[in-house]
Amino acid sequence: MSNALIMRTAYVWVTPAFVSGAPVDHTWVTTYDNQVTPLPDVESVDALGERYWFCWGSFHADGNPATPLRSGTVNVPFAECLVRPNADSRVDSSARGTIFTYGADGVCHQLANQVLWASKDRTGVPLTTAGSNGYKASVFFYRMYGREKEAWNDKKTSCTANPVRGGSGGGGGGGRDEMTNNGDDDFDRDARRILPPTRFAELKALRERFGAELQLEAEAKINLTPGEQAAAEINVAINIYLHEVAKLLSRSEFESLFGFPPEQPIELVDRKMVRADKEVDR
């Protein structure tokens, strides 16, 4: 396969999410600039040989704002191995990466980051959805690439084994990993910079505990209750946890780390996506 077919431009898009006024964006990835090539649906994307990664969301013809959050090069076969494009995550399990259960393992930010593991910016570092609204809170609970860390590592290893997908001409893997040598990811790096060591350690411990608890709670709610009710209850739990986090931080520290004031309720989990795969299957 020629390098021109393997390497394409990846565009990262955002649009305000499901709740008006909530500080959260939905994120997704394409291989085309929808301002230059406007496409109305995924069938049109497929017909032109382009890629659209739904990332646990509906199809969006354009972003809001209209310009992409960022762009870079992507190794298309590698990205396709990590997460299947042109397929709705609600319908096709291979379009979920390792965000197997939406709302428990992660949300759109984590799945878009998994696609972008196969990308590079100008410095050779994989792109992420950092800068989208809600990203910092999302990463606090669900990590950068989802809570199923072992499955994600296995997925990366499997996809990298193919020389076309993961070879030296590919994106991702050769740049920054999700964790630095001291175990920090995007959220921890910001927290370590802002907080003194003792309070950073306290926050990191809270983060580990709350993230693990939320995953277990979310899985139970998703298995036992209707989707919209489960999503509402998961979002309530998220806000309760954030209220506890705010007790450890000053107002300015909280706003710097999360991107919104501590009294602002947030809905990270889209009510239309929780149990959506089960609804479709039925």
Rank of each mutant, 00 (worst) to 15 (best):
N113G: 07
S119A: 08
G97M: 03
V74I: 15
R84A: 11
N113S: 03
T98R: 06
D121F: 03
Q114V: 01
F59L: 04
L82Y: 01
R84L: 13
D62I: 02
Y102D: 12
S119Y: 05
G57R: 02
K120D: 15
H60T: 10
V107G: 13
F100T: 13
D92W: 05
S58I: 05
F100A: 12
D105N: 11
D121Y: 05
C81I: 00
K120R: 15
R122H: 15
R90L: 09
C108Y: 04
F100R: 12
E80M: 09
V125Q: 14
G103Q: 08
H109A: 07
V91T: 14
G124V: 03
D105K: 05
L116P: 14
A118Y: 03
P65R: 03
R122C: 07
R70T: 14
L116Y: 09
V125C: 03
P65Y: 10
V76N: 06
G63P: 07
R122M: 14
A112L: 00
R84Y: 03
C108I: 02
S58G: 13
A118M: 00
N86G: 07
A118R: 01
K120Q: 15
D62H: 13
R96C: 14
V115D: 11
Q110M: 10
N113D: 08
C108K: 02
S94F: 13
I99F: 06
A87G: 09
P126C: 02
S71M: 08
G124I: 00
G97E: 09
A112P: 08
F100N: 14
G57H: 06
S58W: 12
T98D: 12
G97Q: 07
S93R: 14
S58L: 07
P77Q: 02
C108H: 10
A118T: 00
I99C: 04
P65N: 10
P68R: 00
A66N: 12
V125E: 13
R96M: 10
S71H: 12
I99K: 05
V115H: 03
L82H: 04
P65Q: 12
N64H: 13
V115R: 04
A95C: 08
G97Y: 06
P85C: 05
V107F: 06
L69G: 12
E80Q: 15
L127T: 07
A104T: 10
A87W: 04
Y102K: 11
Y102F: 14
S93Y: 13
P68H: 06
V125Y: 06
N113C: 00
A79N: 11
A95Y: 09
R122V: 11
F59G: 06
P126I: 02
A87R: 09
H109P: 10
Q110H: 12
S94D: 15
N75G: 15
H109L: 02
H60I: 00
N86K: 03
V91F: 13
I99S: 09
V115N: 09
A61H: 11
S93W: 13
